[in-house]
Design a protein around this nucleic acid. Structure first.
Lengths: 212, 212
DNA sequence: CTGCACGAATGCATTTTTGCGTTTGCGCAG
DNA sequence: CTGCGCAAACGCAAAAATGCATTCGTGCAG
């Protein structure tokens, strides 16, 4: 979890540049509107060439959302799995998803949310990235399931079951997030995360109940 | 369902053009490889201007997958809902999704699958489109749920429950599709659709069982 | 028939995105 | 220190995608 022992100058500069790019994208979006945000202006404010921008993000939308080109999901998943000791599969998956879901740069969360309020279309972009994260996440879920259902000793959970479980919990979290967001709330605090998981868990159970 | 009473010359030509574009994209992808497929070559073979291509599809990937820019999901959903009379929510949602999921141009299914086998990356593109279809589909699922759970007379199904139900069934269908595809099989026949739904239903039930 | 309204097709300009080869500068071994 | 390897930054050119204005042809009312 802590790779703090000096990530090296190289890594630090890279993080700084990434942060400047995200920051510039969000600021311009707020100041001049999303449609006036151009790659050129963005990269100029971040003091890099337009070409370099694409070394960090696939599009200006991704920069606003803070979704990097490079995919660290696999790393994040394995780290999260080590840290957690859930009692049930449902709890475990929800914790995994909420943990992996939140990225760095908490100082940008506030402004980011403001942009998203003005441009809900941006959220659609997240679906694209879900595709990339799908494989590692599914593997993580499968690990959780085997780890926890060993006690039950019923049939072996397949990758297919993991996929279904993953998407179910993901959908519940999104719905719960939307609910909490509608009723004001910060969403970035520890307390709200607990609330989020609880609401999502309830949603999953209730929906499962309808199946019978 | 049947709007056959002469769609009009205009509509027919439009469909022809769309078909030529899809066809050209798939052919070139198969003949020269996906990376040699260019908009210019594609539109030239379809005998339209490059600019016109983008009136039909958002990208060459979309052309291969046959996903139009214009979103008829809402229309398809309401049509499907009228035609079906499911006994359970699970059945209903699976039928809805499989019905809406399959587009026109069955004659291209074969070649399309061949392209997808060579380039699985393309499937990721579908996630993007799922975003657009989400709202109408969720509404359809909610309709189904209220229609069918009225008998049960338990609590009112919310949009959140519909979202979870939708994604769960969607994930199950994708997993089931992958399974069937791995074990050869055509996937475009009526029989395989039945099989698909059955497998997906089993997956959902089994996964739900793990929650307890 | 004739003319008009409207959607479709197109050309053109601009922006976004990607590929490729070159340069720069951090990290590391000698 | 010093030089080398390698990844990041960059410039440049081509391709992809979008916006806008114009033209063309269908559908339709008079």
């Amino acid at each position: 979890m802590q790779d703090l022992p000096t990530p090296g100058l190289r890594e630090r500069k890279r993080e700084q540049t990434r942060h400047r790019l995200e920051s510039a994208a969000i600021e311009i979006a707020l100041e001049e509107g999303l449609d006036h945000l151009t790659i050129d202006a963005l990269s100029e404010r971040a003091d890099v060439s337009p070409r370099t921008f694409f070394n960090y993000f696939d599009s200006k939308e991704d920069a606003i959302l803070g979704m990097r080109t490079q995919d660290d999901t696999e790393q994040l998943v394995s780290e999260a799995l080590e840290q957690m000791h859930p009692d049930t599969v449902l709890e475990g998956v929800l914790e995994l998803l909420t943990t992996v879901g939140r990225g760095p740069d908490h100082d940008l969360h506030e402004q980011r949310h403001r942009v998203l309020r003005e441009h809900p279309e941006l959220l659609q972009r997240k679906f694209t990235h879900m595709g990339r994260m799908l494989a590692p996440l599914t593997e993580g879920v499968r690990t959780l399931m085997t780890r926890l259902s060993a006690e039950h000793a019923d049939d072996a959970p397949s990758a297919a079951h993991a996929q279904v479980m993953l998407m179910t919990c993901g959908a519940a979290l999104r719905a719960a997030t939307a609910e909490l967001a509608r009723g004001h709330r910060d969403l970035s605090t520890e307390a709200s995360t607990i609330l989020l998981r609880a609401r999502a868990a309830a949603l999953v159970r209730e929906t499962a109940g309808i199946l019978k």
